[in-house]
Design a binder for these strands. Sequence first.
DNA 1: GTGTGACTTCTAGTCCGTT
DNA 2: CAACGGACTAGAAGTCACA
Lengths: 70, 70
Amino acid sequence: MSKEILSKFGKRVRDERVRQGLSQEELAARAGVHRTYIGMIERAEKNITLENIEKIAIALNIDVSDLLKF
Amino acid sequence: MSKEILSKFGKRVRDERVRQGLSQEELAARAGVHRTYIGMIERAEKNITLENIEKIAIALNIDVSDLLKF
DNA sequence: GTGTGACTTCTAGTCCGTT
DNA sequence: CAACGGACTAGAAGTCACA
């Protein structure tokens, strides 16, 4: 199984987060997920669920659809 | 937590599947998942993960990003 | 051809730390 | 501030029999 999409998503999240000057902790707090989880997503270590994709998208102020454009 | 996004996603999948004249079984076979699983997704009973979103998107011949536009 | 309930297995996701 | 680890719990993945 190719985890290509998880890597792309992780990079996208990291890029956006950094661009907005947020720490992983801050983004986690905004999204309502655990601190370490954001790191795992950015490193493509977890297969994120749709609800959490939405949480992160909202926390980053981006459309879910846009967050999945790579 | 609102599962709104799961419902929207489910409807989107069903609409596309029907539009292409596919049965749940056919789509499941194409996507490489179980028959009943497609039904559960369409009924928003599962919080689908990104890898499976991609599988279904590919099976429907649609960009992941487009599949999440509602 | 699809919906449901009842499963079992596996991993998403949390929480505690340390480097 | 981020990576990483271990241990843990919630819930997704995946299958089946039957309506």
